[in-house]
Design a protein around this nucleic acid. Sequence first.
DNA 1: TATTAATTGAGACTGAGTCTCAATTATATA
DNA 2: TATATAATTGAGACTCAGTCTCAATTAATA
Lengths: 137, 137
Amino acid sequence: MKNKSLLSQYSIRKTRPRLQIISVIGKFKNRHFSVEEVLKGLRRGKSKVSRASAYRAINLFSQKGLLRPIDLGKGFLLYERASQKSHHDHLYCINCGKIIEFKDQSIEKLQMKVCRKKRFHPKSHTLRITGLCKECL
Amino acid sequence: MKNKSLLSQYSIRKTRPRLQIISVIGKFKNRHFSVEEVLKGLRRGKSKVSRASAYRAINLFSQKGLLRPIDLGKGFLLYERASQKSHHDHLYCINCGKIIEFKDQSIEKLQMKVCRKKRFHPKSHTLRITGLCKECL
DNA sequence: TATTAATTGAGACTGAGTCTCAATTATATA
DNA sequence: TATATAATTGAGACTCAGTCTCAATTAATA
Ligand SMILES: [Mn+2]
Ligand SMILES: [Mn+2]
Ligand SMILES: [Zn+2]
Ligand SMILES: [Zn+2]
């Protein structure tokens, strides 16, 4: 089945909790989601997966590259399916919560340049711009 | 005295807790610091300022522009004196915790350009690059 | 100095996330 | 397929940063 092969693809051992979590995540489509939302989804589906296992699984999935954590400075992390789109950064509307994605290759290049100058070896970066979207004026 | 005038400068009402907090912050020099570190500093100096007041004061100072919050994704905020240097971004070494500051006007301009294209009104941004500093290879 | 509004401290509380450990389950091998 | 071994799980206690409440205190101002 599809979710099982997804886990093998990322060399993650297949267990019932993990498959249920993957299935809930699938329902979010393209949305960014939190671990607590995954937990709610599990509960709605009568799944008994524990909070600890949900956090463990989602950390593991991020580790293995299946998910990508997104830090919008909300005090908890959001996640997105890594395979659905490649690296990008986010605009975050403080009024309505909307998340706008963008990708800017020139910014990325300049970041690399800064790192070279400082002899810094980047592992990851977060560029988040907070403000008001056009609907919120 | 110096700290009192600092508070008037930012139109912040002068109270003993706030003056003690400012004085502890002064001791950090240029270092980025957390609220809990300020609290430790207060305790070391036998001050009885409460945790609630420390958080309240530091939020107020950030509001008023005396401090600038820095989000390194550690699960809590750090702060720096806003007047000591103008806006800049950070490289953060995951191995030794070192924070390297940088300022890149071309990156800032490209960010504005992204915002214009998306009709987004930026209020603030965080660009943090996480990785290994040259000492940590 | 008296009035009024802002600030404070104590400690209970919240929310996200981690930890422990005995019980369960997946995988590898015979 | 049965068994051994190692990985995973669930329950709930726990941590840590930060917030809240509210009566008591204190600052600004006249
Ligand atoms: Mn995204
Ligand atoms: Mn800085
Ligand atoms: Zn909006
Ligand atoms: Zn380092």
